[in-house]
């Protein structure tokens, strides 16, 4: 893995990506050559070099998601959002813009609200990630989830997981002391259906209810 890191500088342009890839292919083939020349020939014929390079491009990633320890291999360019949605089938976390502008992808990383679309999966190494799927305790909804239902804090439901994850963090951060403060500290989560007043009502109720969140 040493040579991989040496070549995997941030900001590499396409051309250097290409050369890095060639390097990976060559080095893996060289390793294979050291074992037996026959393998190299066969590898070249079957385009194994691509396969080997592809597997070497992945990095090991250990993290905990919703209390479950995961040991994964991911490409370093994979975002935490796409890892959750496309590789782990945790589609409760939503993609709304991919630019960190809408908040639909909000998850908790070590208890902090984080935009998973702006977080490379490998940056979560060793961390604890909580998504909307991990918020309830078994069948028992989290108080914020229950409050969203009670106050109808959504319509289409697409921004809802992000709103709820943000709302929980908003209270924990101490930023839910008034309606105005909630509006300010929830403004990173867009709801195009426009259920904002109901979302604020839900957060106020949970805050005032004083339940363990």
């Amino acid at each position: 893995m040493a040579e991989k890191k040496a070549c995997s500088l941030p900001g590499d342009q396409a051309s250097s990506n290409e050369s890095r890839r060639d390097f990976l292919k060559q080095s893996s083939l060289l390793t294979a050559f050291a074992i037996t020349p026959g393998v190299v020939v066969k590898a070249a014929e079957s385009k194994w070099d691509e396969g080997i390079a592809a597997s070497l491009e992945k990095m090991p990633l250990k993290l905990e998601i919703n209390g479950v320890k995961q040991s994964l291999q991911v490409e370093p360019r994979v975002t935490l959002l796409d890892l959750l949605r496309e590789q782990l089938a945790l589609t409760g976390t939503k993609k709304g813009c991919d630019y960190g502008q809408c908040g639909a992808c909000t998850v908790h990383v070590d208890g902090q609200r984080v935009l998973s679309c702006l977080t490379l999966a490998v940056m979560a190494e060793g961390k604890k990630v909580t998504t909307i799927e991990g918020l309830a305790t078994g069948e028992q909804l989290h108080p914020m989830q229950a409050a969203f239902i009670k106050h109808d804090g959504f319509q289409c439901g697409y921004c809802t997981p992000g709103q709820i994850m943000s709302a929980v963090a908003c209270i924990k951060e101490g930023h839910a002391n008034s309606e105005a403060e909630i509006r300010e500290f929830m403004s990173g989560n867009i709801c195009r259906c426009g259920a904002y007043p109901n979302i604020v009502d839900a957060i106020m109720e949970v805050k005032q209810g004083g339940q363990q969140i």
Binding site: A89, E133, F148, I149, D152, F154, G157, T160, P161
Partner: peptide, 27 residues
């Protein structure tokens, strides 16, 4: 009434069109 699909929407269980797991799916 509370929204009948509310629970699915607040738990992340509601499946939108890009969220179906299919074998051999390409992007």
């Amino acid at each position: 009434l509370d929204r009948v699909d509310g629970r699915q929407k607040v738990t992340g269980a509601a499946k939108y069109s890009a969220e179906y797991q299919l074998p051999n799916l390409a992007y």
